[in-house]
Design a binder for these strands. Structure first.
Lengths: 203, 203, 203, 203
DNA sequence: GATGAATGAGGATTCATTCAT
DNA sequence: AATGAATGAATCCTCATTCAT
């Protein structure tokens, strides 16, 4: 009589445990033994759920990205006004700097570093990363275009502006990671939206 | 009579060779043998110039950061008008996306990832990284304050704005690294300065 | 369900295999690969049982010393007459020159050489070595004092005499190691006890 | 015009420097760079005088042994009475435990350990070591036989007794190396000669 | 399914030796 | 003769992965 196990749930457990360790030590410096210990299972057991170390990484990456997209999607779901939607997207990003996800933020650089290294190999991770950015640009681009259509935003190269805005939040995150005390993320985003990027609003 | 060797020059050679390999393979995936081969020297020779692999990393990091600061400093040296100076800072950043330094850009993520992992250990790398950002914020902050004083910029939290602007260029770089063809950096910076962040300019 | 392994027994196996190799090649000239091969295990397996090469050395050292003490203790356990006890201590030492332990004798110099080099660092090895000598001197000293008390031995500086006697057997061993054929150990010990050190006996 | 150099003298300088380092660190742990530094010359220069590291060892060994033999030979040269000669041999050994040679004593174990390891290879070192012991046994044996002839010593197996006596001094040295404060060498030798090994004297 | 003992490929580092100057 | 920069063979140790239980 085999133990009844929810394979998928256990896989998630391992991913989450792995992510915590990755966040602390970095992917390259994390040993499978560390992951096993963090997940409270035996080393060998990991291989029942993942082919190898890279696969944990890839799954973790997708897990993280999905969480990010879902969180934002939920927040802006019901908002109809483009300007409000636009602002909501960015303010919702501050959620990641708080609560449980905060510790995962530190992995992101590892993800990026690793993903970018593989960029010519068209690995799953890289495709995921690109997809997330493409989706994200599309989402913001669509909001901008909605806003332009109804005259709330000025005409602009929406692709470019979306890229720049995403870049700004990424960069903000980078500085926050480096020194959390230095930057008040909430205030920074407010300043960003209300005082700086006024160029996108129609007069 | 000993061979006359310019130790410092050779050290630079090794650093540059190492940086190229780091850029291609990432720090963790680069073997000392790779560096040796790239520098056209024997494995053992590296250890005549560096205590260990980490020390190459640290030296490379400082080398890169110094080059960055110097390049920008040169560009804005003679400009007196704050608005022009401000614009020059950001347009000069595009230089890094072209020419010889371009290939080094890919290491930056590794630097960041590694540096951030060490952020609680107050290593040299981390101190360097922080110093560069502090200096950079100061430089931009000073320009902004000059501009405010003469009425060209609106009053603002110059520290915050500087951080956001730096973040924006960092984030832009990130996306450029991921897919060079997608983003026209020069045009992006122009768009950034002329169309988006108009909120900082006085009416 | 984990494999049932007697970790301690395997550790002993490795120690014994290592000792054989150390005896043949010397500690410094012995590679971990040699030890692994001798123990019929993989290189990596050694590190499941020992932190590093030195730790094998230390364990081996203690193993050897314990074996020595135990052997002698067993031999003299039931003897009550001090003179007989005294003689038994030395004749039992000849056991080490025969049988299985013989090949380990050659390591002793390595132990000594290594231990003495560490004498100012108060390492475990050195402490062990000192302890063995201290214990050994005490044991012989006690026997001598017993003998003096009952008038079988002359009054003497028992500490000094014990040291000299230990020294003599050590030195004898040294020469035996150098050239086994040259010296008949059994006869030498007999000669030592019956003909030479007659000065300790009461008339 | 080449510098006038006394090659042989410089060779001695290197040997002496090397011996000091060997004494401190042990042969295996001594780097050629250490020897060079101790001798105040360049690493490469050593190879003008010695073929390799082993050759320094061999020369050092012979140097040490010669010094030992010479010292003793000088001491007993003029003594004619066998008993006095016998005693002089052992008391003169205490000289090695004092003065400049003391620090060299610590190498001896390394010499032994190394030499014994090479015992089946009939290397120079081993031959030297054997020769020294053979000579030493002969010297003591001859004195004993002289003494027997004139009735001062009892008839005995002179070879065996000589071996045991040499062994005793070697062993004494070993203990002294381990803990110099523990043993008063001079008093130990006196005790050895006057109180313990009375069995060799004729009544 | 779960485990952890076993493994060996791989890589950083050391150091005796060489050789151009 | 003297040097020390250069070298790569040699070796310790790590750790992802396998597999017998």
């Amino acid at each position: 009589m085999p133990k009844i196990i929810n394979k998928e749930a256990k896989k998630q457990d391992i991913i989450e445990a792995a992510m915590k360790v990755f966040a602390q030590k970095g992917f390259a410096n994390t040993k499978m033994a560390d992951v096993a210990q963090a997940a409270n299972i035996g080393k060998g057991t990991i291989y029942e759920y993942f082919k190898n170390k890279s696969e944990i990484f890839e799954n973790g990456f997708r897990y993280f990205m999905d969480a990010m997209e879902t969180t934002i999607a939920k927040k802006i779901f019901k908002i109809t006004d483009p300007v409000e939607k636009f602002k909501a997207i960015f303010t919702s990003m501050t959620d990641f700097f708080e609560g449980e996800t905060a510790e995962f933020m530190e992995i992101i650089l590892d993800f990026w570093a690793e993903a970018i290294r593989q960029k010519d190999e068209h690995t799953l991770v890289m495709l995921d990363l690109e997809k997330v950015y493409v989706d994200f640009r599309k989402m913001i681009g669509a909001v901008l275009e909605d806003g332009i259509r109804i005259g709330k935003f000025k005409p602009m190269n929406t692709f470019m502006v979306a890229s720049l805005l995403i870049g700004m939040t990424d960069g903000l995150m980078l500085q926050w990671i480096m020194n959390r005390d230095l930057i008040d993320v909430k205030e920074a985003i407010r300043c960003l939206l209300d005082e700086i990027i006024t160029g996108i609003y129609a007069d």
